[in-house]
């Protein structure tokens, strides 16, 4: 077998290990699955009535929930990596003749899988309770493409955070930040009613253009009034920028933390 084949085998085994670990932590797994469902029902049926402005609230809220769940999932990834580093298993892997990058790749690929599952759940439940987005294949492909890119960037960022955190507990606080950031964006309410300082932040933070791009693609119009193409350009700049930073950063940090 060629060395590339070996790299693929190694990475596949690592992904399998990480996913197995995810399924076997019943508490975390249950939370990860329940979170999208409960939040969806909570926002649509508890808050949604009061927030109803232009059409059903579920039409507004789906992209925001996807981003929120991705933030939660990224926290899980950071904790999983920090836990591995705290134990001896990474040392064992590194003393074996396998490519060190497979270890990191395993975590990121597992993170991508978990988060796409959560995204599918949000979309499924949304459709189940009356969300009626576009049926255009191209618009769907665009929205899903952006989600994959966004989750990938967030997963690499999570990996970098997990490496920097120095322990599972510290890594956990990352979840907290990412879970609250979407609230100060256009995820759940338009920015019109926010105080000007908050509004400035909400309109310019990376989650807003990402959410608005999905909204524009699925529903045909954004909530900010800007064109979908405009939001998409900013969203792509943010996600690609984040990916271009977090990927090499995580790789570098991994090498640094494990070879000193």
């Amino acid at each position: 077998m060629s060395s590339l084949t070996y790299d693929i085998v190694d990475s596949r085994i690592m992904v399998g290990r990480c996913l197995r670990r995810s399924w076997r932590d019943p508490e975390a797994f249950f939370t990860a699955l329940m979170l999208p469902i409960i939040l969806m029902l909570l926002f649509v049926y508890v808050f949604g009535g009061a927030l109803r402005d232009h059409g059903p609230y579920v039409d507004y809220v789906v992209p925001g929930l996807i981003v929120l769940c991705a933030g939660f999932g990224a926290g899980t990834t950071a904790v999983a990596l920090a836990t591995d580093l705290a134990g001896g298993i990474v040392d064992r892997f590194r003393s074996m003749p396998i490519r060190a990058s497979a270890i990191l790749l395993g975590q990121v690929a597992a993170s991508l899988t978990r988060n796409l599952l959560a995204t599918a759940l949000v979309i499924g439940v949304g459709l189940g309770i009356g969300w009626r987005p576009t049926t255009s294949v191209w618009r769907w492909a665009g929205a899903l493409g952006l989600i994959v890119l966004f989750i990938l960037a967030l997963s690499w960022l999570a990996a970098a955070v997990g490496l920097l955190a120095g322990g599972p507990e510290a890594a956990n606080s990352f979840t907290f930040v990412l879970m609250f950031l979407p609230y100060v964006s256009t995820a759940f309410v338009p920015t019109d009613t926010m105080p000007s300082v908050l509004r400035g932040f909400a309109e310019n933070q990376p989650f807003t253009p990402i959410i608005e791009t999905m909204r524009g693609l699925w529903m045909g119009h954004t909530s900010t009034g800007a064109s979908t193409a405009h939001e998409a350009l900013i969203a792509l700049a943010w996600t690609l920028g984040l990916l271009a930073l977090s990927w090499p950063a995580a790789t570098h940090l991994f090498r640094r933390t494990t070879t000193h």
Binding site: I13, R17, G88, S95
Partner: peptide
Amino acid sequence: LTGQYAAVDDVLTGRENLEMMAGLL
């Protein structure tokens, strides 16, 4: 390498641990 802290995955079973390491070899 057999480390000071047993370097096995405690979420996996004994068999899964060995099969994983064997796969990596």
